[in-house]
Nucleic acid binder design. Structure first.
Lengths: 283, 283
DNA sequence: CGAATCCATACCTGTAGGGTATCAATTCCG
DNA sequence: CGGAATTGATACCCTACAGGTATGGATTCG
C-alpha cells in the first residue's frame, strides 16, 4: 500500500465527489480519478460505485476508509513522535477549566519525581485533545469521559464528578436546592462540533457557552468542578439524576517513555480517588 | 509522512547498513542514501549517525523504527482487509494441534449461529498467527498465552491448562506419577525461532520437536492437551509446579464484522470454562 | 431540450525516483 | 605501514509517472 494513493482515496471517500476531493488535495480531478482506478486495480476490489452522477462506497471501500484513516494517522504520528524524540519534554493537552484544580497538583507531584521533565501544557478546543494525542503532537491528554473519545488510547481514571446544571442567576430553577433531568426537559441543550445537532445552539468553546447561558439561550450540564471558575452572573444547581463525568489522563498505548510513565503516575497519585489503578483501552 | 521513505528507513534501521538495505529493497544504494537524507531533512531530525564505516540509530531513529513499523503494518493491513471485505468468509489462523480438540466444537457452535459464514482454517508455523492477524490476512487466531504475543490484539480466554512434560517412554522420569521443574534442571529445553537461544535445540514445528524428544535430545513442556495427539513412543508426566498455558481467540481490535463477533462468541460458548468474558488488550 | 454537473479518457510535460560511475573515509590485514 | 576492501556520499544522467489541460459521455435538472 502506498500512502499517497490511500490519502487520495480517503479524500474521495469522505467527500464522495471527485472534484471536491481533488480541490481539497490541491490537485486536478483527472489524476485523482486515475489514482483511484490504479488503487482499485492493485487491490483487485471495487472501492467506489460511480454512477456518472454520484459516488458511493462499497463494503470494501467502507473498510478501507475506516482502516486507512487509522493507518494514515499512525503514519503521521510516527513522524511527529520521531521529531519530538530528541526533545525530552512532554506535551500535555487539555481543555481550559476542565481539571477541577487538579492540574497544579499533578504538575507539582510530577516535579518531585526524579524522571520529571519540562511539561508544555497545550490548551486546545473541544475534541482536539484526542486528535493531538493520536497524531503524536501531544504525549498525554486530560480527557472527560464519556464526552470525549478515548478509543484506541490507554488511560487512567483520575476523578469522577456528578454533572450539575449551569444556569443564569435569574433562571427559574436557579434557586432550587436540586433538580432532576425532567426539570430541564424544556431547555435547549447545546451541542459541540462533531456531535449531532439536537436543536440547541452550536458551541465551540467554554467562553461562548457561558455567554449563551448568560443570555438565557441555553443551559448546560457540566462537571461539578466548573463552579470554581464560574462567571458571577451564572450559578450551578445539582441534578440528582444526572450522569457523571470522569476525568482521565490518556496517552498513546504505543508510547514507552520513562518520563511519560512518571507523569501518569504523578497524575494518579495527585488525584483524590487514588485507588488501585488499571490501564484500559476501549474496544 | 510518505510510506516509501518510511519503508526505506525501516530497512536501513533494521540492517544498519545501506548496501544490504538497498539490496533488500531491490534498489541501488545511492538513491537509498538520498531518500534517507530527504527524510531527515523533512523531519528536521537526525535519524542515523553514520561513521563512514557503520550506522547507528539515534533516539529519534529508535522511535521512528518502532512506530514506523507499526504504521506500515497498519497500512498494509488496511489494504488486505479491504481486499477481503467483499468476501464474507472468515480466516482463522492457528498452529497445528494446539486446540485441545476445541476447534471442532467452536466451528460446530459457530455453524449454529445465524451470522455464520464459511471459515477458512489456516494452519501456520510458530509465531505466524499474530503476524497474519496484524497484517489483516486472518480475521481471528487461536493463540497460546504467554508463549505467543497478543500485544495490540483483543482476545477472549478459552481454556487454561497446566503444562506437562513430554518425554520418551524410555526416559528416566517417564514412569513417575508427577515431577517438578527441578527434576528437569539437567535437560536441554528447546527454543523457537524468535525467542532467545537457551542452549537447547532450535525447533520449527511440532513434528520436529517430537522427533527430537523421541531421540532423547530434548524434553518439552507443553499444554496438557497434547496427550491426545501424541506419538506412541512418547509419554507425558504432570509437572506439579509448571506454568499454565491459556488458549485464547484473538482478533484485531479494529475489526467490526458481525460474523467475526459471532465466531468469537461461538468460541467462548464452546470452551469448557465458559465464564463471564472480558475483552482485553495488553499494554 | 439545453444547461449544468460529474466522472472518464486522451494527451502532454516536468520532476522526482532510480541507475551507473566514482570519491572519500575507515577498517582490515599481510 | 601500505594496499585492499568495505561503506556511505556525490555527481550525473535517464526514464517513468504524477500532475496538468482539454475534452468527451452520461446523467440530472429546470
Amino acid at each position: 500500500m502506498d500512502s499517497r494513493e490511500l490519502t487520495y482515496f480517503v479524500a474521495v471517500a469522505e467527500e464522495l465527489n471527485f472534484g471536491r476531493a481533488a480541490t481539497r488535495l490541491g490537485i486536478a480531478q483527472p489524476p485523482l480519478s486515475r489514482t483511484i482506478q490504479q488503487l482499485e486495480r492493485r487491490l483487485g476490489v471495487t472501492l467506489l460505485t460511480r454512477t456518472s452522477r454520484s459516488v458511493a462506497l462499497t463494503a470494501a471501500g467502507e473498510v478501507l476508509l475506516y482502516e486507512g484513516k487509522r493507518a494514515l494517522a499512525a503514519l503521521t504520528a510516527a513522524g511527529r513522535r520521531a521529531q519530538r524524540a530528541g526533545d525530552p519534554g512532554l506535551v500535555l493537552a487539555m481543555k481550559a477549566n476542565i481539571d477541577g484544580d487538579l492540574l497544579e497538583k499533578i504538575l507539582a507531584q510530577f516535579a518531585a519525581d526524579p524522571a520529571a521533565v519540562e511539561v508544555e501544557v497545550r490548551i486546545g478546543g473541544i475534541g482536539e485533545q484526542g486528535v493531538l494525542l493520536r497524531s503524536g503532537e501531544a504525549d498525554a491528554a486530560l480527557l472527560r469521559l464519556p464526552h470525549e473519545d478515548a478509543d484506541g488510547l490507554a488511560y487512567e481514571e483520575l476523578l469522577t464528578e456528578p454533572d450539575v446544571a449551569v444556569l443564569p442567576r435569574t433562571h427559574r430553577l436557579a434557586d432550587r436546592e436540586s433538580i432532576t433531568m425532567s426539570d430541564l426537559s424544556g431547555e435547549q441543550l447545546p451541542y459541540w462540533p462533531g456531535s449531532p445537532p439536537n436543536g440547541g445552539p452550536l458551541v465551540r468553546d467554554a467562553a461562548q457557552l457561558m455567554q449563551l447561558i448568560s443570555l438565557g439561550r441555553t443551559v448546560a450540564l457540566l462537571p461539578a468542578s466548573v463552579r470554581h471558575h464560574l462567571r458571577t452572573d451564572l450559578t450551578t444547581v445539582p441534578v440528582t439524576d444526572a450522569a457523571t463525568t470522569t476525568l482521565v489522563i490518556a496517552w498513546s498505548p504505543d508510547a514507552r517513555s520513562r518520563s511519560l510513565a512518571a507523569l501518569v503516575q504523578a497524575a494518579v497519585t495527585a488525584s483524590p480517588s487514588a485507588g488501585p489503578h488499571r490501564s484500559t483501552r476501549t474496544a
